[in-house]
Design a binder for these strands. Structure first.
Ligand SMILES: [Mn+2]
Ligand SMILES: [Mn+2]
Ligand SMILES: [Mn+2]
Ligand SMILES: [Mn+2]
Lengths: 258, 258
DNA sequence: GAACTAAGTTAGCCATCCCTAACAGTCTTG
DNA sequence: CAAGACTGTTAGGGATGGCTAACTTAGTTC
């Protein structure tokens, strides 16, 4: 049961593919549907029966599929969502086109309309905002990709020179925090004397705000000072200051040894 | 099979919940897991067996669950993703906290790490960009919500006065394009003389670029002039100009009668 | 028109993941 | 310590959505 229709994600995808095929080729054949969805034809037959039962398509065995009025309406909406999400990922964030489309085709079934509307509004706002000139996106992309290369280039390597438009400090912050597979540990795992860089700060807004106020931001360097016997409190040194964190706070901080 | 682990979304959620419970209460009991996931206890038992088989948790019948090293690592990553997505939706886009968390808990399983990294980078960039002052987000939210009220207020109602920070034209564009349930039709469905507003332009980048160059943008008002017998070409009037669209182009345009 | 081929269907299998109902431990309490 | 309450497990069933294998239908070729 996807967020919007009362169909499963799988059936929504079938419907979407049918609309695409009708638009592109005038008709949708079982074989082409199977190919696009990377499933066997036997699976398509089953799906077409379920869609027929829902009144979204009209088809008779061995004939090509057509969308009913309701099916066309729904398929168009799903496709619209898909295309907006893919465009956001590709054109704004610079995600590779194929990955963007794959992600979009998964997200489209689960994101709420509220989030989607707000995302659309945000994109629109950035484009229209007088303080954000139209080059923002391309400058972000060039800056991000520079950072990408640096991270991808290996550990010991020197960072590439960044172009002049990168905001000060951008590359010092942990930009690629999710794809970092290994080496990310909990703050509490550090031993006295260990130096590390903050990767992410999780937890409730209250805890996070307090930590951020103290300077515990992604990218910040710190040194473990002392861990009390039961892990509470934990003393760290950050930007020359000594901080004492409670166990519950420390548990929300992921770090990476430097 | 979620994008990152080789677990199903459901099992990733179980793991995430277990980590949360361990962090909050020191241990994870089957009953609490069932409650958080809104499933019956029998379902939990099954899930715990599968997670044990994957080596992610260690548990014996009727005892409380603990995470293995590998399980803790993975659960932490899933939770990190969840929290970042929820924070983006809530704190940047202004989505209601509960909706944001629900969306995040679905998106977290399907979004690629590439997209997530780039999203994190984009958020970071906006915060650090010298031309985008720190009030951008709050100004977007106040502006968007103003638009919200206007749209939600009903059709015939006068728009609320917008605060002075809204970019010129923001409210004229179709901001809430996804939650609009009814009344959105294809351009080709209009009859000569009908006036409509563009809701979205889909289709390939090439077609979209051409249409955008001609001024066919979301929010633009147009009037249908003439539809040739076979639907090709379609003549419309837009901002005083006459445009002739091919059928394939017109098919990518969704409009709303005004 | 028979033989072949490609497209599509049916039947039967399996995995996942939920459910209810019944049963089995464990804890509390009179 | 026995009864009852609570927690958790097992057994069995249903929906979904894949798969393979075998069959049917329809179109093409000789
Ligand atoms: Mn999809
Ligand atoms: Mn899609
Ligand atoms: Mn989830
Ligand atoms: Mn989650």
């Amino acid at each position: 049961m996807a967020q919007i229709s009362n169909l499963s994600s799988s059936l929504e995808d079938y419907l979407e593919i049918i609309l695409q095929l009708v638009q592109e080729q005038g008709e949708a054949r079982a074989k082409d549907i199977a190919q696009r969805k990377s499933v066997r034809m036997a699976s398509v037959t089953g799906a077409l029966k379920r869609l027929t039962a829902e009144g979204l398509i009209s088809y008779q065995a061995r004939e090509s599929v057509t969308l009913t009025k309701a099916g066309e309406e729904l398929a168009g909406r799903i496709l619209g969502r898909h295309e907006f999400i893919a465009r956001f990922l590709h054109e704004i964030l610079g995600v590779d086109g194929e990955t963007a489309s794959r992600d979009a085709c998964a997200i489209e079934h689960v994101i709420s309309l509220e989030s989607l509307d707000r995302l659309a509004g945000f994109v629109e706002y950035l484009k229209l905002c007088p303080e954000v000139d139209e080059l923002l996106i391309s400058r972000f992309l060039s800056c991000y990709n520079m950072g990408c290369k640096r991270v991808a280039g290996g550990r010991g390597e020197k960072p590439k020179e960044c172009n002049s438009t990168c905001p000060r400090g951008f590359h010092d912050r942990a930009v690629k925090i999710f794809s970092r597979k290994a080496g990310v540990i909990q703050l509490s795992e550090l031993k006295p004397g260990d130096r590390a860089r903050v990767v992410s700060v999780r937890g409730s807004v209250i805890i996070r705000q307090r930590l951020i106020d103290m300077g515990v931001l992604p990218g910040a360097q710190l040194e473990m000072q002392r861990v009390a016997p039961l892990g509470d409190p934990i003393d760290i040194k950050l930007k020359g200051y000594h901080l004492s964190l409670r166990k519950i706070e420390a548990a929300t901080i992921s770090v990476e040894r430097v």
